[in-house]
Computed example of a mutant assay.
Amino acid sequence: MIRTIPELISIPVGCLFAIGLVGAAAAQEPQDYPMAQGGTITLPSGEISFADRVVRFEEGDPPSEREDARDPEAVLGPPDREEGGESAALTLGCHGSIVLEFTDNALIDAEGADLHVWEVGDDAEPTEVAISGDGDSWHEVGTVSGGTSSLDIDEVADEGASYRYVRLSDRDCLGRHGRWPGADIDAVAAVGTAERIVLDSGVLFGFDEAVLSEEAAQVLDDLAERIAEAPVSRLEIEGHTDSRGSASYNLELSERRAESVREYLASLPVLEDLSLDIRAVGEAEPVASNETEEGRQENRRVEILALP
């Protein structure tokens, strides 16, 4: 059975800092979390490091006999399954899989391990891990299994790339019979992470334009002050559009819009020590359906990755 989770709710500009750089110092404060196999792991960016949204859950066959072990949203946020507990984690089922999205951060290649998976339960069940920037092209990272739960994406990551999605797939279904067939997943976190700021293109630009509006200046000024207070060395500014118009035109428009934001931020003294790059995405990475006006509005955006 495949369950698709509703699309991400649109982020109002008034709630711009509800994701990414919310209380800049607190959002990036390192925190320790207990690992499923004992000991602790330090996440440099704290709670924003965890996966935020379930994109798709393909439940294996057989599934768990326990209804409370079949909720895919049990994977989201910090680990909360108590030692010896029988819930607060998702059982994938035999050869089941789940796709998760990071919305307020992005997975990046940093020094050492970059991704940690809380695979819990009595059996150490192999779980294949893949990452993607767009949800279509996937890089197979490796396998986690109980005591081996951290992965370095260095060998598969493109230079300077960031990744929005992670896919976990039960491989061998060791727990084929019983209440928890397949891997049991409590949480997933990006150890190597960059914060993500999402800006509504409707506030920054007029229709089909790439010239910043008067309102945009205040939004970007406020954003720059917050970025300046955070331990950030580089910004990657991404332009995104909906799918109306040709793909080539949308790519060009997204590039012009990203460049307008980059030029403005580069002109601000508080950000003079930062490196600013742009990435034109066009319509290639939607976060909602382009079949509705609400979805298209979500897709018309500028995303800024604040990298350490």
Rank of each mutant, 00 (worst) to 15 (best):
Q28I: 03
A89T: 03
P6H: 14
E159F: 15
S97V: 06
A284V: 07
D109W: 02
G282P: 00
D123R: 15
R196M: 08
A74H: 01
G282I: 00
T127P: 10
L107I: 09
L115K: 00
D109I: 00
R279V: 14
N299H: 08
V55P: 01
G295P: 03
A266C: 12
Y33V: 10
R53F: 00
V144M: 12
D52A: 15
E159P: 07
D222V: 07
R257V: 05
P78A: 14
G182P: 02
A18T: 15
I48G: 02
D184V: 09
A157G: 15
D123G: 05
I41N: 02
L212V: 11
C94T: 10
E83H: 02
E47A: 14
E83N: 10
E83W: 06
G147F: 14
S45F: 10
R3W: 09
V203T: 14
E238M: 07
R226G: 04
S213Y: 07
A74W: 01
W118N: 00
S275M: 12
A224N: 13
Y249L: 05
E259D: 13
S201W: 00
E128S: 13
G245V: 04
Y163N: 06
A24N: 08
L253S: 05
D122P: 09
F57V: 10
D222N: 05
V219S: 14
A280D: 11
C15F: 09
V191R: 07
P63R: 11
D104L: 08
S132G: 15
C94E: 04
R279H: 15
G147Q: 10
E238K: 07
L305T: 12
Q218E: 12
R256T: 03
V120L: 01
A224M: 10
A194Y: 01
A124E: 13
D184Y: 08
R81F: 01
E59W: 00
R3D: 14
Q31A: 15
